[in-house]
């Protein structure tokens, strides 16, 4: 048995971290709330190859695994990058036998958005090519996007009305389900990065800030809250890696692993972000501080691609059907 990243993946994580630290960050996420552009934005993500990690090499992608993508997505989540790698991962599955469209995904010449009925769609803002499941068929087309008051502007949420669609793949329900599972894994990977960063920021402050004559992180009330958040992050990391691995190596395990990761990610990120605010006290709920940006991501992501209760119900159904026996 071996359950750890390989050296290529560790290198990819280090490279991605360097890229994202330079191209994005909480300040850009805050600016996006006031109308600023997404950072790094699609062209930069396409330029470094992150939109094509799981696109086949023949279509101009890297031909990597979902775990390769998850490792990069974690770093994207740490700096609240937009647009998401969730859409890139999901579209790559949907476009598996569409080399031209897959190439356009990888090189950024088209801006994709995947639509789930009338739910607000991730990365709808600025998208020009929309994928959806209509009557069991995978369709592609244009769309009219209505944006609301964004809770987290980096997610580019919009309600999409499809226009001028054509059938790309008939009877695509199975592929759609797999793509959605892969998207849940990528979302959980981004949430892992965000949660880990929120805990790191909280820990850093608790080591420095003094009250009643000593660092607040020495008090068990503060220390234990941070530890619980950190333990959650490490448990989530295991589920994300397992689910991402399963996507390629054990597709039969993917539904259980993806739903587990999705359920755990939403709660873990929420706890991490809320703990980060609480540890910062009065500073923690100011506009200037970064804490609310992690919190905003948490509050949006927990409702994307199914909430915790839905994921738990999927897990329960699979367990009842013998997934653990």
């Amino acid at each position: 048995m071996n359950f750890d990243l390989d050296t290529d993946q560790l290198d990819a994580a280090a490279g991605a971290r360097q890229f994202f630290d330079g191209e994005a960050g909480p300040a850009r996420a805050r600016a996006a709330l006031e109308g600023g552009p997404l950072a790094p934005g699609r062209p930069a993500l396409a330029g470094i190859g992150f939109l094509g990690i799981t696109v086949p090499e023949a279509a101009g992608g890297a031909g990597g695994s979902v775990l390769d993508l998850a490792v990069v997505a974690e770093q994207a989540g740490a700096v609240l990058a937009g647009p998401s790698l969730v859409t890139a991962a999901r579209a790559a599955v949907l476009l598996a036998d569409q080399p031209d469209l897959a190439a356009a995904l990888a090189d950024g010449s088209r801006a994709f958005c995947v639509v789930d009925g009338d739910h607000p769609a991730l990365d709808a803002v600025g998208a020009d090519t929309f994928l959806a499941l209509v009557d069991g068929d995978l369709v592609v087309g244009g769309g009219d996007v209505v944006t609301g008051q964004p809770m987290d502007a980096t997610r580019g949420l919009g309600v999409v009305t499809l226009t001028g669609t054509r059938v790309l793949v008939p009877d695509a329900a199975e592929r759609w389900a797999r793509a959605r599972d892969v998207a849940v894994v990528a979302l959980a990977a981004e949430d892992l990065g965000t949660a880990a960063r929120a805990v790191e920021v909280g820990v850093g402050y608790a080591r420095e800030r003094e009250a009643f004559g000593r660092a607040i992180g020495s008090y068990q009330a503060v220390k234990h809250a941070l530890v619980d958040a950190w333990v959650g992050v490490e448990q989530l990391r295991s589920l994300v890696w397992w689910a991402a691995w399963a996507a390629d190596a054990a597709p039969g395990e993917l539904p259980l692993a993806a739903a587990s990761a999705g359920a755990f990610a939403a709660e873990t990120l929420e706890r991490a972000a809320e703990t980060c605010i609480q540890v910062h006290g009065g500073t923690g709920f100011t506009w200037e501080h970064d804490a609310h940006l992690y919190w905003r991501r948490a509050k949006v992501d927990r409702l994307l691609l199914g909430d915790t209760a839905e994921h738990q119900d999927v897990v329960a159904g699979l367990v009842l059907a013998g997934a653990l026996s």
């Binding site: 448990q235 989530l236 119900d313 367990v319």
Partner: peptide, 23 residues
């Protein structure tokens, strides 16, 4: 079902974290 799902997720997270430590 909700309690079952929540418990299974926590148990799996613990199990796979154990695999990382064993590795």
């Amino acid at each position: 079902r909700q309690a079952l799902g929540r418990a299974a997720v926590a148990a799996l997270a613990n199990r796979y974290t154990g695999y990382r430590r064993l590795t």
